[in-house]
Design a protein around this nucleic acid. Structure first.
Lengths: 206, 206
DNA sequence: TGGGTCATGTAATAGGTTACATGATTGC
DNA sequence: GCAATCATGTAACCTATTACATGACCCA
């Protein structure tokens, strides 16, 4: 049976923690696998209905928090089996579309400052990303020391940190190269092109 | 005017080289930006028609190669202006959906060998990727030494290499960790679990 | 009493893949 | 003659986002 990835995300989340609502799941995705996965309500709610029809999940409690209406779900045995089946299937890596790289690739059509600005933007995002990942690393293991999933969570986190750090280092050297080029092309007022050279290369936390 | 990314890919490709057919463009995408971008005919051909209607590109020559029917396109001045406008606009980094990481994150539900197999798969793909990128690096600059786009092409290539190498190193250490764990859990027949330990850590070309 | 967040959902639309259909040309 | 590649396109379908609609509860 073919199922969309959102369904497996739901099954996976419920395998870790029961009694989540659709709203909870969205939050959980953003707060844990957010750096490599995204889900919107428009995907989650229909998927919840479909999974319920197929008895892979079941509505568990209702209106627990205060008197607030709240539809929580739990994994059924069939759902757990379905998740396990999917886990062993080979993954297909999606056609990755990176608009930053696309603009950089075609940047010869624009002034050097354009590429430099995009690079600075990407560096800034990556610095924030690394901070976020470091914060997760500092708090999660302490709060769930004996969680059997922890080892895998830390592995995904580790790849995120590794890739982000590598991207930051590449970005620094790319900025150096492009700034030098921009300076060479506009040698008349060396004080004017502060855009790139005024920022010192980011010193990354390890 | 809002336009889909495929349109800008077409404009970008034509800014580098004229007289490409839709077929050529698909090939060019696969052979150059393929590691961070994908296009299908179902996107390209409709986009070509739309861009022609909007006069951002123009059908240039017909049936040049042999007697073969062949509709080639070229950038108009309006098209070039449109590309430049887009280049300076901030990029939005897409919600990245990485199924490998998704499976790794939820792998606690399955046997350790499942995660190990996925990891070996990803290492193999990354090794091949690095070979491809190295091959491009070895041939492209020699063939187009004075192309003004070359600097930017090499930058995107450099990021690809950097990220792939970083991923490979992470993968090696992840495999060591998971293999040790698997061995500790099945101490009865240490010769049996060859899946992970039989392969030596990949020695990557730099 | 009003803003923020919890909570659920739908409709419009965009974005994209895959499979199919067609046919010519090139090279073995 | 046959397979591979060049070449163009469409239709069906899936995936996914965004905006919208609705309303309750919490806290200041």
């Amino acid at each position: 049976m073919k199922r969309n990835p959102t369904s497996y995300v739901i099954l996976g989340l419920l395998s870790i923690q029961s009694n989540l609502t659709g709203y909870d799941m969205r939050k959980a995705v953003q707060g844990s696998i957010g750096y490599f996965w995204a889900e919107s309500y428009g995907q989650i709610y229909p998927a919840l209905k479909q999974l319920t029809r197929e008895k892979l999940i079941a509505a568990s409690r209702k209106s627990a928090k205060g008197g607030r209406q709240r539809q929580e779900y739990a994994l059924t045995e069939a759902g757990r089996a379905c998740l396990r089946e999917w886990l062993v299937l080979p993954f297909h890596n999606e056609p990755p579309r990176n608009e930053f790289l696309l603009k950089l690739f075609f940047a010869g059509e624009a002034a050097p400052s354009v590429a430099i600005a995009h690079l600075q933007d990407v560096q800034e995002r990556n610095r924030r990303m690394l901070d976020t990942l470091n914060a997760i690393e500092a708090t999660v293991p302490a709060s769930q020391p004996s969680n059997p999933h922890l080892r895998y969570w830390m592995l995904t986190l580790g790849l995120g940190k590794t890739l982000t750090r590598a991207a930051l280092e590449w970005g620094d050297s790319a900025l150096v190269e492009l700034s030098a080029q921009a300076a060479a092309q506009l040698p008349r007022s060396p004080k004017a092109n502060r855009t790139a050279s005024s920022r010192s290369p980011s010193r990354h936390k390890r």
